[in-house]
């Protein structure tokens, strides 16, 4: 594994204009991400986590600071939003192949890839269902398949499991970590859950209250694959206590 960073973030700040001057959402955030690293970002509500992802996705410009990608060019991005954010008029398979359509791949290859992705996220039999006929967990899996299908350089996940019930969520953790290991992606994932971050991440960044600064940068050296009972190990407990202490 190469250790040259794929993503270098330097002194990133974000200020939103409002009536009383400006609201500082992110303050001087710097960190590097290595290729294939799974980074979780934890932090209290309003600490600028979504803002950070939106900047990295190129949806809004930072107020100051910079971020550069290792390969020099604009990376392709797979993004999973907090809500599944599917197109209600498209079927499951049509939603999943959207990124390939945008990249103007021919229809036959796009369909073939979409079918592979459907198998990867375990949605066989629902190819032609509409989003309104899916459960929250299934919709979120469609969103994940859609984020992966064009083999993006960078995967940005914004609390992708927040709207799911506890059981579905834990099943999704297992699926995501399986997919991540199979596909070897670089991932930045925002979450509110310490357990979730310890279950999935190589590394956890904790942000402070608004304006968000990096308060703690913790390596998660738990063995993989991580099974459900990992939470009862002493190492897990130690890391969890450390993170809990860092989050106000």
């Amino acid at each position: 594994m190469s250790h040259a960073p794929i993503l270098t973030i330097r002194n990133l700040s974000a200020v939103f204009q409002n009536e009383n001057g400006g609201l500082r959402a992110l303050d001087d955030v710097s960190f590097n991400v290595r290729p294939r690293e799974f980074v979780c970002v934890l932090g209290p509500s309003g600490s600028g986590k979504t803002t950070l992802l939106r900047i990295l996705a190129g949806l809004i410009p930072p107020t100051s600071g910079s971020f550069t990608f290792g390969r020099g060019r604009q990376p392709s991005i797979g993004m999973v939003f907090q809500q599944a954010n599917l197109m209600p008029w498209r079927t499951v398979i049509e939603n999943i192949k959207l990124p390939l359509e945008v990249n103007q791949m021919d229809e036959a290859s796009a369909r073939k890839k979409a079918i592979e992705m459907i198998e990867l996220v375990g949605l066989q039999g629902f190819e032609d269902s509409l989003p309104r006929d899916l459960s929250g967990g299934m919709a979120q899996r469609v969103a994940i398949a859609r984020a992966l299908i064009h083999d993006p350089d960078l995967l940005l996940l914004d609390e992708p499991f927040a709207s799911l019930d506890a059981m579905t969520r834990e099943r999704m953790w297992t699926e995501l970590s399986r997919i991540w290991q199979a596909r070897q992606k670089t991932v930045i994932m925002v979450t509110h859950s310490i357990n979730e971050s310890l279950f999935l991440a190589d590394r956890v960044l904790v942000l402070t209250q608004r304006p968000g600064k990096i308060k703690m940068d913790v390596a998660v050296d738990l063995p993989r694959p991580r099974k459900d009972d990992i939470r009862y190990t002493s190492n897990f407990g130690k890391l969890a206590r450390k993170l809990r202490g860092a989050i106000e």
Binding site: R54, A57, G58, L59, Q74, S76, I77, M79, F81, Q83, N85, M87, L98, P99, E101, V102, N103, H150, L156
Partner: peptide, 17 residues
């Protein structure tokens, strides 16, 4: 929905797309 614009922009979609 603005979220769908975000989705398309994250994929670097063109205005026509």
């Amino acid at each position: 929905p603005t979220a769908l614009y975000d989705l398309m922009n994250s994929l670097h979609a063109s205005r026509a797309q």
